[in-house]
Amino acid sequence: MKKWIPIKLIVPILLILVLYIVAIIIEQKELAIDLNQKNTAPSLTHLFGTDWLGRDMLIRTWQGLSVSLTIGIVTAFCSTIIALLMAVVAGANKKFDRIVRWMIDLFLSLPHLVTLLLITFTLGGGVKGLMIGLIVTHWTSLARVLRVEVFQLNNSEFIQASRQFGKNYIWIVWHHFLPHLYPQIIIGAILIFPHAILHEAAVTFLGFGLSTDQPAIGIILSESMSYLSAGYWWLAFFPGLFLLSITLTFQYMGKQVHRVMERNDRYDSGVNN
């Protein structure tokens, strides 16, 4: 039973890892102000150009991405845990299920960005407010998927049998649910990631998220707004492109993971037959 990971999956993972490690290294470095090098267009010395204080845009963008990635990872992790907990609670009995369903419907019925804005704003913005906002709003879709899975498992014969043997719900969750759910959990977590990053940038762009001295992509983009009509397109273009690429890379990675897991399933079942 040979399980191999295809190159299509390795490339995006490596890409993001390298990006993140470089970002962490760069973050230690002070962003130098050079008033003689203000607003220069992209060149070999400054690949992404410089801003109105002569700071290198490549370094700023990279630092911004590191903030975004960190927020994305924490959000994806915490949201997934909330989603899993919700699904498991829903599977426990009918009453809990109704409550969980009601909560999922509540969050899904409100426009995502608006809820996020409200929560972030009431918590006073900043990294903490933004993270809590993101975590609280991003668990719903995954929770809905997991809830259905748990529901199906609950009705399957081996779970019924397990129950007949007197195993309690926690034991069943640990020994039966988790092994069955983990593909969904991993894919779900990866797919929350791009959402979280984009929403972080959006909220920050609107001025409710991270504070202006943090090097975040949303900040860079909103700052560049007042320079766009002056013709300094590189201030927005490259950071925007970078953000887009990261998002798409994660999306792609999610897809590849999905395919690998599906294929392994198929492979396993083929062998068993």
Binding site: W52, L53, G207, S211, T212, D213, E223, S226
Partner: peptide, 8 residues
């Protein structure tokens, strides 16, 4: 925050 001149 938001006042770019003062920030610079």
């Amino acid at each position: 925050s938001g006042d770019q001149l003062r920030q610079s």
